[in-house]
Amino acid sequence: MASDALDASANNFVAHELPSGMILDLTAEQYARDWALAQFYFHLMPAYSILRREKVELGKADYVAHMLPYIRPETIPKG
């Protein structure tokens, strides 16, 4: 999908039905920003806590690996 197609679909409407029967009427952008992102982090935090409780070495660096291409090569620690 081209990025302009994604931008164009941001204003499409999504009807999201909750288990209680309530229906949220949102644009695709609102759904992603206000519902899906919150749901993602809500489930991520317990998973992170469980992994840490089980002694899995997991820290901030594991969440920002996508930033590695932006590091200035001369600032990488030697050793």
Results as ranks from 00 to 15, higher is better:
H43P: 01
A2M: 07
F42C: 02
E54P: 02
P73E: 09
M1Q: 11
N12Q: 13
L68R: 11
P46H: 01
Y70M: 14
S49Q: 11
R53D: 12
F40T: 02
A2Q: 10
R52Y: 00
V56N: 07
E29R: 14
V64K: 11
S20A: 04
A36K: 03
L51I: 07
Q30W: 05
D7C: 09
G79H: 00
E57D: 15
M1E: 13
E54M: 12
L6S: 12
L26Y: 01
H66R: 07
Y31S: 01
R33T: 05
A38D: 05
G79W: 00
N12K: 13
L24N: 03
A8H: 05
T75L: 10
V56Q: 13
E54Q: 14
P46A: 01
R72P: 06
A10T: 03
L44S: 07
D34E: 06
P19A: 03
R33K: 07
E74D: 09
L6V: 15
E17A: 15
D7E: 15
D4C: 09
A38Y: 05
P73F: 02
K78M: 05
D62N: 09
M67C: 12
S9Y: 14
P46K: 01
V56T: 14
V56M: 13
Y63Q: 06
R72W: 06
Y63D: 06
H66W: 13
F40K: 00
N12L: 12
A38I: 04
E54N: 13
D4H: 13
Q39P: 01
A61F: 11
F13C: 07
L18R: 14
I23F: 05
E17T: 15
M22W: 13
A36G: 00
N12F: 11
G21R: 01
M45D: 09
K78V: 08
F42L: 06
E57C: 11
Q39S: 08
L51H: 12
D25N: 15
Y63A: 10
R33D: 03
D62Q: 02
Q30M: 09
V64L: 14
L68C: 05
N11M: 06
G21Y: 00
P46R: 02
T75W: 05
E54T: 07
P19H: 06
H66G: 09
W35A: 03
L24P: 05
M22N: 15
E17G: 07
D62C: 01
K78Q: 13
